[in-house]
């Protein structure tokens, strides 16, 4: 059922707005794809909208050729992202459960501080993290990057997990206790299975955050072999003279998009249901 009955003119305006926005949302990406799959000789002025022949040379070139960045940077990004996702999921589950189930006097204040921290984006953390890692000798290590990613994802993760646990009735836990289950069994058989959707969302968001991260590894990882693709792809941009190898940069970007877009495609309903922050921001 439609909520509002619109006039014909209003419907037309709505269709136009939705259509234009759709073009705005997808055309830039389609352009990247179109440059990535056409031979380099076609990526010159004057450009044709559609490629006249298709090739995978650019993609194989990025991944395997001598002027490519190789698989390493993607593997690095995956490793950092997955590690951060696991740590974030564990820490957020623990913290979210504590805040959802125990009424602590300082609990609400804590939630607000965590909320405020989650509003500080990664850019404002580059200098602080550079200072911290340099001062502690963690500079350039994988642990530093992974923990820095996780610390960035945990605040939202705790919020989402607190929301998830609040939606699991306490009565189910009480029922499990009465049925004779101790703490471990209650968690393993009743609480965690019901929290899995929330945990998946938190882990996914953390993975995407880590996979996408650029400024933190840019400043925290000096060694080329340990850098993720976001940093490695810069080799196709020569700032002097603005020479950019667009076919390879587009192909490299396309490869980077595939994991996030597939994860998003699988989990988008769940991600949307969580309502971003909306679901967690209450009480």
């Amino acid at each position: 059922m439609e909520l509002v009955r619109l006039s014909g003119l209003q419907r037309l305006a709505r269709a136009a707005a939705v259509g234009l926005a759709l073009a705005f949302a997808v055309l830039p990406l389609l352009w990247v794809v179109s440059i990535a799959v056409r031979p380099g000789t076609q990526a010159v002025y004057p450009i044709s909208i559609l490629p006249t022949s298709l090739t995978l040379d650019n993609i194989t070139g990025v991944l395997f050729a001598s002027n490519g960045i190789g698989l390493g940077p993607y593997r690095n990004a995956a490793f950092y992202g997955l590690s951060s996702a696991v740590i974030t999921a564990v820490a957020s589950t623990l913290g979210g459960y504590a805040l959802a189930r125990y009424s602590m006097r300082s609990g609400e204040a804590l939630l607000i501080v965590i909320l405020a921290l989650s509003f500080l984006p990664s850019a404002s953390r580059i200098v602080p993290l550079f200072i911290l890692t340099s001062a502690t000798g963690l500079y350039g290590t994988a642990q530093a990057v992974i923990l820095a990613y996780a610390a960035g994802s945990i605040p939202l993760g705790i919020w989402l997990m607190a929301g998830t646990f609040r939606q699991i009735p306490v009565r189910l836990e009480q029922a499990a206790r009465i049925d004779g289950a101790g703490t471990v069994l209650t968690m393993r058989r009743v609480v965690l299975p019901l929290a899995i959707p929330g945990i998946l969302v938190v882990a996914t968001l953390a993975f995407i955050d880590g996979w996408n991260s650029f400024s933190l590894p840019l400043i925290l990882i000096p060694k080329a072999a340990a850098q993720p693709y976001t940093v490695a792809l810069q080799r196709y941009i020569q700032e002097i003279g603005y020479g950019i190898n667009w076919p390879l940069l587009s192909a490299g970007s396309l490869v980077a998009l595939l994991p996030v877009l597939s994860v998003f495609a699988i989990l988008q309903r769940r991600l949307v249901r969580v309502g971003g922050l909306g679901g967690a921001i209450r009480g």
């Binding site: 029922a175 009465i178 101790g182 019901l194």
Partner: peptide, 20 residues
């Protein structure tokens, strides 16, 4: 004694059946 060791049977108002 902890709840899980009392051997009680309990029917909750909303039944509290494990949904999964």
């Amino acid at each position: 004694l902890a709840p899980q060791r009392r051997g009680i049977g309990y029917v909750f108002q909303d039944y509290a059946i494990y949904p999964h």
